[in-house]
Design a protein around this nucleic acid. Structure first.
Lengths: 183, 183
DNA sequence: GTCTATAATTTGATAGAC
DNA sequence: GTCTATCAAATTATAGAC
């Protein structure tokens, strides 16, 4: 096996890890499985990520950055609130159709009490950012935080039920319903 | 260790298993941990549940029966729809405050793609029953199934976010919001 | 029904050569 | 950066005694 550019290899490892983790959670990931999927040995994975928690932390942090960035600017003004919430909904729909698997934050959030501390902290940071974006997107209402919690949790739940019932329409109808409400 | 009545022992095992599973999912459960918590040896757990999937299947089936039964009758008439949906919401609030952990269906639903087939089938059966109850509770509307999916998934998502953010109010406000809507 | 003992496999992790 | 080799621990599971 020829050496590869470090950043590419790291991304490859994180791609495969994210894949496995979104299917079965943190414990569904093993160094050997990841290594095999990437085409290297497990000791080489340890070279990049010494401990499993390093791997978990890196994959959720990368996911958070990508997801939040995909939402674009959450301009804090009253105009086009529905458009911005639809962007959020579309991001969830995209994440689902992407791989047919649940949002990474969703599955790791479910397992939070059993995760290593670095990882659970990173998961909570993801949700802090996501809720802050959503509250801002709602245009600075008084109860923006609570509305944001309702919207985000509804999308997450609908996404999870979509995977459980193997029916992506559950999520898309949820997005439709919330976007055509006045929040 | 003195022998115990079989049914009691089985319930003890399922209690502990449910506990562990609600904290970290299917993979967070090990025969040794369960045995230790119950006060027996792992081989004795295997006597009651030969394979791990037997344990998983039994725990979700028991959970489903208890949860659905706690909802009471879902009389199919237009009266008191809000009262019935509030019963459903209260069941979720109860499940959360019960152990401070997520609903078992919720966490196993998230991991569905990686579960043994018996277990994933049992999880889907749980949701089939829950959605059927909710659709009936909505009083036989035309789009009852879709409304039921929205309500159940919103409760599930709010429960999960409550655990993730360590704020039970996220769920209780979600219940309040949906109960005071006209569905 | 529970125990001891043990097998077979998997897992996270490290040392050291190239 | 990747490899070989290896380890200690944990895991699912079974056989057979009591």
């Amino acid at each position: 096996m020829v050496s590869k550019n470090t950043q590419n290899r790291i991304d490859e490892i994180l791609d495969v890890t994210e894949d496995h983790m979104r299917k079965g959670g943190f414990d569904a990931v093993s160094f050997r499985d990841i290594a095999t999927a990437v085409g290297i040995k497990s000791s080489s994975v340890h070279y990049h990520f010494p401990h499993k928690s390093d791997l978990g932390k890196a994959v959720i942090e990368r996911y958070a950055e990508r997801f939040i960035k995909s939402l674009g600017q959450a301009d804090t003004n009253a105009k086009d609130v529905q458009g911005r919430i639809r962007r959020l909904g579309d991001a969830y729909i995209g994440a689902l159709s992407d791989k047919g698997t649940i949002c990474l934050g969703c599955i790791l959030g479910s397992e939070l009490p059993s995760l290593p501390e670095d990882v659970s902290t990173a998961v909570q940071t993801f949700f802090d950012q996501l809720l802050a974006w959503t509250a801002a997107a709602l245009g600075g209402r008084r109860d923006g935080t609570e509305r944001a919690q309702f919207i985000v949790s509804s999308f997450q739940g609908a996404m999870t039920l979509s995977v459980t019932m193997k029916d992506p329409k559950i999520l898309s109808r949820c997005v439709e319903r919330l976007c055509s409400s006045n929040f």
